[in-house]
């Protein structure tokens, strides 16, 4: 996949549409659709910009997913929906589909290879594709979960509710 600065906004549009499809599949509230589109585009473009500056795809994905997680938590407070409504559709466009596909092809080839064949090349390609798939998936899941876990303890609503109670008892 060739990346240069000019194609990034265009890719951002497609990140948005890919997320929108999953948002509709998961039946999100209609009021959140535009926000999901924007969050997915922002996360995807952040990943591509980082990769453009030579950062490895796993770390770039982690950063993109974390951005999506943070944006989802703030969108959750504005739009009154749980963060996962925004974050799950928005990270799905970053899944390493082609790497997973190539890993599967490699595994099939390896299983068909006879003992004594030189399958070093296939083995290293399959291991590389498989590990990329695994680590990108982990980066996605951890990146998007961390902001939710950090903010879960004291959500804005809970804080507001507590202060309401205090006011009542003060009066």
């Amino acid at each position: 996949m060739s990346i240069d600065l000019l194609t990034i906004p265009e890719k951002g549009i497609w990140f948005g549409f890919a997320a929108l499809g999953f948002a509709v599949l998961f039946n999100v509230p209609s009021r959140t659709l535009i926000i999901i589109w924007l969050i997915a585009a922002a996360g995807g473009m952040a990943k591509l910009v980082l990769m453009l500056y030579g950062i490895d795809i796993v770390m770039a994905t982690f950063a993109g997913a974390t951005l999506i997680g943070i944006l989802s938590v703030s969108a959750a407070h504005n739009k009154h929906a749980p963060p996962l409504v925004f974050s799950i559709p928005a990270v799905i466009p970053m899944v390493p589909g082609v790497f997973a596909y190539r890993m599967m092809l490699g595994l099939i080839k390896l299983s068909a290879a006879k003992i004594g064949d030189d399958s070093t090349q296939i083995l290293s390609e399959t291991a590389s594709n498989g590990l990329k798939t695994l680590f990108i998936l982990m980066a996605l899941a951890v990146g998007v979960a961390i902001p939710m876990l950090i903010t879960r303890k004291e959500s804005i609503k809970k804080i507001r509710h507590k202060s309401d109670n205090q006011q009542v008892s003060d009066n």
């Binding site: 497609w14 990140f15 549409f17 997320a19 929108l20 499809g21 999953f22 509709v24 599949l25 466009p93």
Partner: peptide
């Protein structure tokens, strides 16, 4: 929309 997501 899911088909559009596939195309994306």
């Amino acid at each position: 929309l899911v088909a559009l997501a596939g195309a994306s």
